[in-house]
């Protein structure tokens, strides 16, 4: 799945391993949520989004402890 703003693939970040996360533009959030729901991946969405220098608003989707980062990345990569 591509980030609409950067046209780079969305990436699951595991800097803090207990809670991997994805940063996504608000405009793509619903698509991402539907994708994760279809695959039964539990997550939660930051309640706030932020825009820098008049850029698009982005928010963070967090995954729970024990989520397999590789599986989630594969799901994202399976979508155009």
């Amino acid at each position: 799945m591509l980030d609409n703003a950067t046209e780079r693939p969305l990436h699951v970040s595991s800097e803090y391993l207990p809670h991997p996360r994805i940063e996504v533009a608000d405009s793509q959030l619903e698509d991402l949520k539907q994708l994760l729901n279809r695959h039964g991946i539990p997550y939660w969405v930051d309640e706030h989004s932020i825009s820098f220098n008049d850029g698009p608003f982005t928010t963070i989707v967090h995954f729970y402890r024990g989520t397999d980062v590789k599986v989630v990345q594969k799901i994202l990569d399976s979508v155009d």
Partner: peptide, 11 residues
């Protein structure tokens, strides 16, 4: 610092 930021927030 970048490697610590998420830990600082989440934990």
């Amino acid at each position: 610092l970048s490697t610590h930021i998420e830990e600082y927030i989440q934990k």
